[in-house]
Design a protein around this nucleic acid. Structure first.
Lengths: 179, 179
DNA sequence: CATATCGTTCAGTCAATACTGAACATACTG
DNA sequence: CAGTATGTTCAGTATTGACTGAACGATATG
């Protein structure tokens, strides 16, 4: 990984070695995104794509993504749709250009939290349904466990919604100024 | 399945139909647990087992579980270990009994939250590493995106830890970070 | 219209995972 | 010690899911 110091461009402040190191760091970050995404049950490629957008930011064309990540266009299509459904990516169109471009959504983490809250709500409703359908007066232990399950998911939903609100309002507006 | 029911109170009669309805509701709840667990990347059987413990509660023997859930002992063994690793179940032993018994952990949701916080921390560290490894002074957009990613996961970890604390001590209110 | 390019879809391939059933090791009991 | 019951492990099987590459429809441009 260590380039010799000959052959660097004299006019540039950033030598080739530093740029190579930066690229390696970016690659490492992207790969890490792939791994953590996989740990969350997402396809690894989706995680890498996400990471690529955190680095590149700007609208990326489909072909660009396929080349950069070394995967087929089909994979790009599928995973881009997946990330779009999650609310992480969004489509942008350019006038006079037929290509699809994608970029990070303006608030990808808020979208993620919405999905998380939804799954929590599903579990909470499941507990709720059981609470109202079972004759709990005859089974205090069951009532206690079901209610504690219901209350936990309730709290989780509330905490998630608080986090969503915090993300939306505070002194950190998302402005996407790209290089 | 056929438990000895108390038939000493003929007036507070619980008809067979009601009992059947309750069993159906329990089954539905358990199946719901299987589905939501699957949505979270867990094996469906693990979710059903979890649901069964929410209903049954008390220490269940291995054989009991295998019969109740209609799966092989091997599956029970594997999935019980999985849930134990997650901190959802715990082993209990009875004096003079060689069988393994399992029951819900005293705080299964707190254990879950710990795992969640760990995964969040992994992502936060990934962002942090990228932040310190990349020459961000030349790429303000990248810095902004990496920092917002890092801060989100930081906030998520904090919210999760607050929820853990709230679970442990429900009397105290949930306090958000106020740095 | 003809051509090229782009995004999607789908059959096919491959890998990972869940589950089973049997073999095995261990511990209790008579 | 023999017999029995229990938990784990492991090879085998089935299922699910990811990814590819080609085919297809659609859209822009010459």
């Amino acid at each position: 990984m260590h380039d010799a110091r000959h052959m660097n461009t004299p006019q540039s402040n950033v030598p080739a070695a530093a740029r190579a190191a930066a690229e390696a760091a970016a690659e490492e970050f992207i790969e890490g995104m792939g791994l953590t995404a996989e740990a969350d049950g997402l396809p690894r490629i989706a995680g890498r794509m996400w990471g690529l957008f955190v680095i590149e930011g700007g609208p990326c064309s489909f072909t660009e993504l396929a080349e950069r990540l070394q995967v087929s266009r089909g994979s790009i299509s599928t995973n881009a749709r997946l990330l779009r459904d999650f609310g992480i990516l969004e489509r942008v169109s350019r006038p006079g250009d037929r290509q699809d471009y994608y970029r990070l959504a303006e608030n990808p983490y808020g979208a993620l939290l919405h999905g998380y809250a939804d799954r929590m709500r599903a579990k909470q409703r499941n507990a709720e349904r059981a609470i109202s359908a079972l004759p709990l007066q005859h089974m205090p232990g069951v009532r206690q466990r079901l209610e504690s399950m219901q209350q936990f998911h309730q709290s989780a939903v509330e905490a998630t919604e608080a986090l969503i609100a915090k993300l939306r309002d505070p002194a950190h507006p998302h402005q996407q100024d790209d290089q």
